[in-house]
Amino acid sequence: MDPVLVIQSLISGVMMGMVYALLGVGFSLTWGVMHVIHISHAVFGLLGAYFAYTLLTLYGVDPVVSAMVSTPLLFIVACAVYQVLIRPLTKAREMVVASMILTFGLAIILENLLVLVWKADPRLLTPSYASESWIIGPFYLQYPHLIGFALSLVGISSLYVFLKKTTTGMAVRAAWQNQEAARLYGVNLFRISMITFALAVSTAGAGGISLALLYSFEPHSHNLWLIYLFLVVIVGGVGNVIGTALAGLIIGVITGLSMAFLPYQWVNLITFGLLMVFLIFRPHGLFGEVG
């Protein structure tokens, strides 16, 4: 194996992994805190990507600016989705199953709306610096990848600081670790669930924009993204932010290396073989559910 190629694919893997981590961390939180497996999570990522695509092609707006605009917008949209669709589910006997079926339906509706508005053609985010790279010795780092990576790193770090340092963030963690005790000390579960859901969806939007800086996307791309989300969450541990970030990096590196050295058809086979292995031997992930 060529060491330059190994390191080059490690670098790509780390960048890709950080983006998966940002997409996955919200998915993990809604799952852990609310017991909602949000199947349309990745579609909101695509929504972010199309939003950035439209602003870029029509007005030349940089994707980073779009991410800063889409985050509060998606937060508001997600609050409405929570109130109308998710909150009534709390009465359901099996929240997890009910939420999966409902959000699967939502994913199909949203995917078809994407086709209606943007057609089914693959798109690519091509800002002015799309073809530029930062060259260090034999290695090159493409600018769009660097920016997607940086965006994801900032997104995850902000979420982490929010959960650790703010009163509301602490209430989110409390509600996830013991709902009844959280209620006894005044935590309003509906409000906390709405905030969790909205944060998850808005970080998914930023994650979608980051991913769109690395790969082309089309209205059904969210299906593949979703499988990676499951993988990241299962390896990292449900609801565990740091675990999710590390899992994203691990999976990114594995995918990066197998893309460089194996025939394409092996890449997904290896990644999802890994998912099976985890489900059988470490169903709580590498880092556990609590963290």
Partner: peptide, 24 residues
């Protein structure tokens, strides 16, 4: 204010974070 049966702490949070949750 109730101290529930079985304590029902927030196990992954620190002692001080648990206390601060009481003053939410």
């Amino acid at each position: 204010i109730q101290v529930p049966e079985g304590r029902k702490l927030f196990p992954a949070m620190t002692v001080e974070e648990n206390l601060l949750m009481g003053a939410y």
